[in-house]
Design a protein around this nucleic acid. Sequence first.
DNA 1: AACCTGTATTAGGCATACCTAAATCCCCCA
DNA 2: TGGGGGATTTAGGTATGCCTAATACAGGTT
Lengths: 233, 233
Amino acid sequence: MPTRARLQPNTESVDNYLKAILALGGQQERLVTGKELALHLHVAPASVTNMLQKLAAQPEPPVLYEIHRGARLSVAGKRRALEVVRHHRLLETFLFEVLHYPLEEVHDEAERLEHFISERFEERIAARLGHPKIDPHGHCIPELDGRMANLDAVPLSDTAGNGPFLVESVEDRDSHILRLLRTSGIRPGARLQVRTRTAVGHLRVTLRGRTVHLPPQHARAVRVRPARSPHIR
Amino acid sequence: MPTRARLQPNTESVDNYLKAILALGGQQERLVTGKELALHLHVAPASVTNMLQKLAAQPEPPVLYEIHRGARLSVAGKRRALEVVRHHRLLETFLFEVLHYPLEEVHDEAERLEHFISERFEERIAARLGHPKIDPHGHCIPELDGRMANLDAVPLSDTAGNGPFLVESVEDRDSHILRLLRTSGIRPGARLQVRTRTAVGHLRVTLRGRTVHLPPQHARAVRVRPARSPHIR
DNA sequence: AACCTGTATTAGGCATACCTAAATCCCCCA
DNA sequence: TGGGGGATTTAGGTATGCCTAATACAGGTT
């Protein structure tokens, strides 16, 4: 019998591609280029082309692929990507809340385990945690049905005024930055004000009376929204 | 540059071979044949030969391979195998105690996850569980240094007298049998007596006043030791 | 309209870890 | 001691998922 394109391969690798397309496509779900994916996933561009072609050729393609232009998720692909994100963020919450991991270490562990936990595991840790909506970095946890709240926060680097701002989330992929942010007190729920901004994007901010210097890369890792009243949270 | 045999591949597959050799070799660590491994791992005998040759050819071979005779673990291989078993049994305990899995479901989940958890994860769940020595099936959990207590229990199918016996452990690989045993009350710590034995190995046992019929396959899955006094647990 | 540059694709390979089918080996038994 | 039969090994092949190098394309610039 001929081996034709498999239904639902759903390997670790495939899941990572889907997650990357979800993350890079943004809320408007624009086409994601091969180069972006290659950078994000640390693989060669040729590998991305290969994988996208393979995925798009499946009976129920998880990605829609426009040659030479890029890819975006199909409905099925988005569902799967959100499922993986749900696994990831529930695991992060679990590692943080139950196993008391330092915040900057939860990402890597969750990144590995997210591909291998069963639905039962997912369900049990969700129950154990009281079905949380937000992970310890401040990111939304997709619901079981794939719904996910859209947060309106923007990177601190993209803000205009001086605030005050409320930290909504911190980027989790770079544990080094994350550790520095944590030890500076910059974590979800923190309230801060911008003191100075340089032309090249360095910021000086204050929170809880302390002054912290943030290079552009760090400012980009912090998402904030305007703080309406003092002492929220 | 030439690709020579890699040091420490330590893939999921390799770990499974090491674990299988550990399990099948028994306490006396006898040679394990290719056929045994093939059956245990559900792969073709030729695949086993391939893998054993590859492992034995490494700079620090985890297995010692005697051509046409079989394989056993080197010191390094045994260390790794025990590490994986430790992961497995800690995970089982964790799933059972913290996430309240049904006993017969912990094995499959642990089997998948054991290969991917970090040392930190291992350490944290061990701490969380109070550094347990026994998993929920009654199996010993190897210590961090690779030491593991040798239990002296024997399969119920191999016993002679009528008991009473104390159930020390139940086999975890067959969830079907395990569920039946559990619903019959046959679990670690249970006390039972043999009523009748047929020539082909069927047993009738009583525990807590109930009578249970055990086909040979089930009797083999229960390890017991003589109960000295009533109500030990 | 041709070019140029960076991006994308194709072509050809490698490593892992399986498989089947065809030899080959070991050892027990007649 | 010479088969025979089961186990083992070799040979050759598949699928995944990555790689590099070479080629093709797209879209802005002259």
